[in-house]
């Protein structure tokens, strides 16, 4: 049974369909990629899943439960965590506190403050930020802010992690590190649904890829199938 599935999910922005009648599913333990040209509706779809936006029609189910239109904090507690395309860290708070907030509020079962500190420290270590726990988030490099977002999301003990362009703006070394991080997260038993523009990364990491164009799902399949799909190549190279 898929951990996440959507049926006929639709969202309009002032008459324009940003996401139009999209069906999708993500199986437990998978890494699924979501690609498409700019403005294809990828981030909108993530916003619909995470509760930042409410779909006009359609149903989204998580572990069999209908989560359509629930508030973001509820969805987070149910086990879906996310990162953002443009980093959204708590800029003036130390990295450690950024992560602690995830443990304190986002986890399904409430956690005592001392336990939250322990978890946050371990997670900072996991993403490679143990040296900068006391540094305000705004003073971290972009790559480190992105890792911090991942740590904060992991602190909510998610079953499904939505990654929105984790590698955008990173240099080749940082990209390789991010790819390794994604694999390590999957090894912990967390399912991953990720938007990415870096083709090399998405092709090597994902089990399955979905392609959106103008809000419509135009293709779906293994990286191999997508890489050779005529339709997808047309979309990327222009009609």
């Amino acid at each position: 049974m898929p951990i996440l599935e959507g049926e006929g999910v639709t969202k309009y922005f002032g008459g324009l369909a940003a996401v139009s009648n999209v069906d999708f599913y993500v199986d437990e333990g998978e890494i699924v990629g979501l690609i498409g040209p700019n403005g294809a509706g990828k981030t909108t779809l993530f916003n619909l899943i995470s509760g930042a936006l409410v779909p006009k029609s359609g149903v989204i189910r998580f572990q069999g439960a209908n989560i359509t239109g629930l508030k973001p904090h509820r969805i987070c507690k149910m086990g879906i965590a996310r990162t953002f395309q443009s980093v959204k860290v708590f800029a003036n708070m130390p990295a450690l506190e950024n992560v602690m907030l995830g443990s304190l509020f986002g986890a399904p079962n409430s956690v005592a403050p001392a336990e939250a500190v322990r978890e946050a420290t371990a997670l900072l270590d996991f993403v490679g930020l143990s040296a900068v726990g006391a540094t305000p988030a705004k003073d971290l490099t972009l790559a480190n802010q992105k890792r911090l977002e991942v740590a904060r999301a992991l602190a909510t003990k998610p079953k499904l992690l939505l990654l929105d362009e984790l590698m955008a703006g990173l240099n080749p070394t940082e990209t390789a590190e991010a790819m390794a991080l994604i694999t390590r997260i999957r090894d912990q038993g967390i399912t991953i649904f990720m938007i990415e523009h870096v083709m090399k990364a998405i092709m090597s990491v994902c089990d399955r890829i979905m392609v959106l164009h103008h809000g419509v799902k135009i293709a779906e399949g293994t990286p191999q199938e997508i890489a050779t799909s005529k339709k997808v190549i047309e979309v990327y190279l222009g009609e």
């Binding site: 904090h73 987070c76 507690k77 953002f84 860290v89 708590f90 003036n92 907030l101 986002g106 909510t156």
Partner: peptide, 15 residues
Amino acid sequence: QSIGEDEEAAAHTGI
């Protein structure tokens, strides 16, 4: 404090 820093991120962190 996290609401003051970034309300959307705060909501998605379970607050």
